[in-house]
Design a protein around this nucleic acid. Sequence first.
DNA 1: TAAATACTGTTAAATAAATAACAGTACAAA
DNA 2: TTTGTACTGTTATTTATTTAACAGTATTTA
Lengths: 220, 220
Amino acid sequence: MDATHAFEHLPHKTIERLSQYRRALLICLENKKTHIFSHEIAKIQHITSVQVRRDLMLIGYSGTLRQGYNIQELIDLIGEIIDSEELTKVAVMGLGDLGRALVNYFHDKRSKLDIVAIFDINPDKTGTLFNGVPCYSVEEIPTIIQEENISIGIITVPAVQAPVTAGRLVKAGIKGILNYTPTPIQVPNDVYLEELDMITTLEKIAFYVKLSDEKNALKQ
Amino acid sequence: MDATHAFEHLPHKTIERLSQYRRALLICLENKKTHIFSHEIAKIQHITSVQVRRDLMLIGYSGTLRQGYNIQELIDLIGEIIDSEELTKVAVMGLGDLGRALVNYFHDKRSKLDIVAIFDINPDKTGTLFNGVPCYSVEEIPTIIQEENISIGIITVPAVQAPVTAGRLVKAGIKGILNYTPTPIQVPNDVYLEELDMITTLEKIAFYVKLSDEKNALKQ
DNA sequence: TAAATACTGTTAAATAAATAACAGTACAAA
DNA sequence: TTTGTACTGTTATTTATTTAACAGTATTTA
């Protein structure tokens, strides 16, 4: 129906990069820049300028020769593609350190994503506000998710509680889940799931650091 | 020289999955399981059993027909491939919510990765221990990194301070950086960099949730 | 002991993503 | 007014990754 339909088949990686481009562009805009070249964007994102131009081609945006891309226009276009028209509401499951970090992070960000609820089992936390966001008890999950029309849940509870937390979210009708715990969870097909635990990334870095160390050792 | 050399050309994605397999396998081991089938691993990781078998083939591990893979053996082999022989030491830059989350996370984990230092600018925090890990001032970065032989730094400082923090790490001879802030940083080629900000992931989920919503709307 | 079953292991094919190659063009310099 | 330069935009190619196809085999069932 609307513009999004045409962007249905954008590569997953392009979607990620568009989000990153926008973030970089917003900073450029703050610095009073009005235009930017593909190679400038590329440098920021550690990719090639061809990749940038290709991504922009895919979303049908044209720059100006010798001038580059209009930053404001590009920000707006990326917004049309990846943002929903209405606010997308997000819940954070677990008000531990990671939960707090996430809420702080999104606080005051002008974004189409908004953390509107926190859920925790600790009675000392429930009923309070953290950074303006209400913290509810887990019993309230079904009602709040539905009443507030929350579509995404971020799981930051202790690892062992991840599956049961996910189950509650699914039951309440959540549409997307971001699982930050190291425990993989199972969700129905119609729930979009992303698992992203910190250990995997760190172990990967450690592996490549080790590899490069060993290469250097061989040279000597 | 050693076994690692043979695994130099493993696909990046396989490295990530090996780390995830191991985590899942460790949990299975705790539950007194001794063997596991490829399709069981696959289910946990939301991938296909072919993918699992292919990864295991690449690392040269063979299971037993009708019995599956020996969990302990597989854990050990993955360890030989992705772990260093010595402990890999990690520093957390910034003792905010995210920094605390990371330190807690690794606390007590039997792992070849160890967070041995925290750096922060806040004088109330420096000189203290958090979860047994000493917090130093930023002035001490060069000496501690070198004396302790820290090879990886995780940046969790406020976004605007990310580039200067990265610069200090590089100057101190760090070999790998994991940047959790939304501000992209620049490092020399010989430093392995991974950027992983929370907004990108969340915006990606929001996009695919929106997409599926729109498809459903069309059906009706 | 033949047939079915339930797995592993490997090669072949398909898909996804990144890179290379290059055509096109406005502008600047000579 | 030509030549060089510095960009964009697009197609072609290559590389990376996943999936499919299927051969092989121990075990169970008939």
